[in-house]
Design a protein around this nucleic acid. Structure first.
Lengths: 195, 195
DNA sequence: CCTACCGATCGGTAGG
DNA sequence: CCTACCGATCGGTAGG
């Protein structure tokens, strides 16, 4: 009893997010999560069912949102170069804005138990595949020139993921400017030439 | 006594490298490292002094080698575009060839105690700075065109780091081909135009 | 190289 | 929300 008003499942996830992003899942003790919320460890279990499910609840919705983002940003956009630009922009932007989430998603998938891990990896593969298909489409249309579309999609996605590692809201660039710069990098990487 | 001939400090580091790369430092128990070598946990201490020092001995030499690689590959190379190409090629190549090492270096720096962590981060910053300086030099020489050299260097380096995550020696591309492809990506990203 | 064992800490439960 | 407590496991030491 005597539940604290500020302590909710969402608040627990937020505290865990901060610590997982800093030290990793295995490097974070639930006692530290509790400490951040100024409660005792067992009280966490009023809001979560296990440490694993806490990680899953952070990482799974996010994986789905990345795919939703992609569809929303690219649906109906033409030509294919603008579709790739939009796809990279929205992905890069998310990594500048949700840095903790992105770090946990990319560092701690390995710590996630089955069947969650397989779900996350499947969603990620679908995203990568969608980007690769855009590149292949551009090559076939004659507007891109890439020897290895898979390498290009890996490279593009990973440089976006990296944004979460170095971006600072106090830095000189806004998330939107950072996203635009990465979209430009992506179009250059795939050899885009105005037709 | 009764030391096993195959079990040496280097063999312990190699076993730890495999497990750290798969599950991370905090996700790996020394009992698992011992298990891989088919010895008991306390026997490890004939070859190591602590788990932390084991991580440090993996990660510190590697950080230094990355800088040595860079110097060896770029010294005296002209013009600046070829110097950047050589720098990216050697960095990418290492991430295809030493995947475990690269994964541990990039995932588990956070798990490294001071003063080692600061040493590793300082070496990494020097490497990034050297790449960035190459980009700036190319821009000033009029052969590159980039709005944000720092973003370009981050993007280039991180897409190389990512190679360690997806490269397979059984895949269609050799380390050298992969390295060449990434060098091409890098030159495209910085807007290289033949003069 | 081993067995035996240490204190500390982990995630989680009981019970209120 | 708490205190009290659980078994398991951690990194590491003693001593041979």
């Amino acid at each position: 009893m005597t539940a604290r008003p500020g302590v909710t499942p969402a608040a627990v996830r937020d505290a865990a997010l901060t610590l997982f992003a800093e030290r990793g899942y295995h490097g974070t003790a639930l006692s530290e999560v509790a400490g951040l919320l100024e409660i005792r460890t067992p009280s966490l279990y009023n809001h979560i069912t296990s440490k694993q499910e806490l990680l899953a609840q952070i990482v799974l919705p996010l994986s789905q949102e990345v795919l939703d983002d992609l569809a929303a940003a690219t649906d109906g956009v033409e030509p294919v170069a603008e579709r790739l630009r939009a796809a990279v922009r929205v992905y890069a932007h998310r990594h500048a804005v949700q840095r903790r989430e992105a770090l946990v998603l990319n560092t701690d998938v390995a710590a996630l138990d089955e069947p969650w891990r397989s779900r996350v990896l499947a969603l990620r593969r679908r995203h990568e595949r969608a980007i690769r298909d855009l590149i292949v489409e551009g090559v076939e249309a004659g507007v891109f020139a890439v020897d290895h579309p898979a390498l290009a999609s890996f490279g593009i996605l990973e440089m976006c993921v990296a944004i979460a590692r170095w971006f600072s809201p106090d830095g000189p660039l806004s998330p939107a400017e950072t996203a635009d710069a990465h979209a430009t990098f992506a179009l250059r990487m795939v050899g885009f030439r105005q037709s």
